[in-house]
Write a protein that binds this DNA or RNA. Structure first.
Ligand code: MN
Ligand code: MN
Ligand code: ZN
Ligand code: ZN
Lengths: 139, 139
DNA sequence: AAGCTAAGTGCAATATTATTGCATTTATCT
DNA sequence: AGATAAATGCAATAATATTGCACTTAGCTT
């Protein structure tokens, strides 16, 4: 929900500006990884204009608040749909339609932490990304 | 091992050229994510020169053969240290010294596949990246 | 060992993506 | 409504990535 992201911006002392709302709306609507220039393009098609610098800065902010996430595949940005969690971001990406779905799995976190510990590594953050076919594209 | 990567190049019908060997050696030696220009810089310091276009093309090739991997964090490239596996790449990155370590865990794959399946998603590829502290940096 | 040839590299030009400083605008609080 | 710090737009610049083509080279074939 965009509304929820706006609330978080406020509680963190950031303004809920028009450009920020627009970027959040685009990410929420498209549900696919979008580059800063992709976002600019989508907005242009809606008759809106944002300078690319602004979009970069907004994405930086959203990522720092865990409200958005930069994907490995292609480097596009997506809106996080779960409660913002520092240091654990997991997504499934459909290689057919590009749709993304965020997920969380405490068991995975535990297993990963344990695995790392066994190798002398102390884990702070987890990222994972699956690619495959979403239910709609999988026949 | 660089030697092993060269063998794979050959079996796949690619030439083991001097530039390719140099890039492999740099990635193997540094063991940290390096951008194409980072690699060029390391080579320059050794008195070698590769055009950046060449480096881009070599990295593309190595990634397509699963001999190298482009990291999420910063987008740098690393040399894969395990047998090349299509579609499953896992790394730990030390946020202190930048060192990376590749790993594999069949149990993780299974759990991820199962988790995805429960959500109507058919998984083909897995990526994961932990960040934290390696044994040397963790006090 | 020399020659052949497809594959690979370097170069120059161009395109795309990202960053910075500063003047102007805007959201929020009085 | 007015004050003010924060955010945006703009222009310039920097960094990263891609393309076409001429030249070179690795690995084969005599
Ligand atoms: Mn976690
Ligand atoms: Mn796997
Ligand atoms: Zn799909
Ligand atoms: Zn370390």
């Amino acid at each position: 929900m965009v509304q929820e992201s706006i609330r978080i911006l406020h509680t963190q002392g950031y303004k809920a500006t028009e450009p920020r709302k627009l970027v959040l709306e685009v990410l929420e609507e498209i549900e696919k990884p979008l580059s800063p220039y992709d976002i600019q393009e989508v907005l242009r098609a809606k008759g809106k204009y944002l300078n690319h610098v602004t979009i970069y800065r907004i994405l930086d902010l959203l990522c720092s608040l865990n409200l958005a996430h930069k994907m490995l595949s292609g480097g596009g940005f997506v809106k996080c749909s779960l409660d913002p969690v520092e240091g654990c971001h997991r997504f499934m990406v459909c290689q057919d339609c590009g749709a993304i779905q965020e997920f969380a799995d405490e068991g995975l976190c535990q297993r990963e932490n344990e695995f790392a510990r066994n190798h002398g590594f102390h884990t702070e953050h987890h990222l994972s990304e699956f690619s495959g076919l979403c239910s709609r594209c999988h026949k």
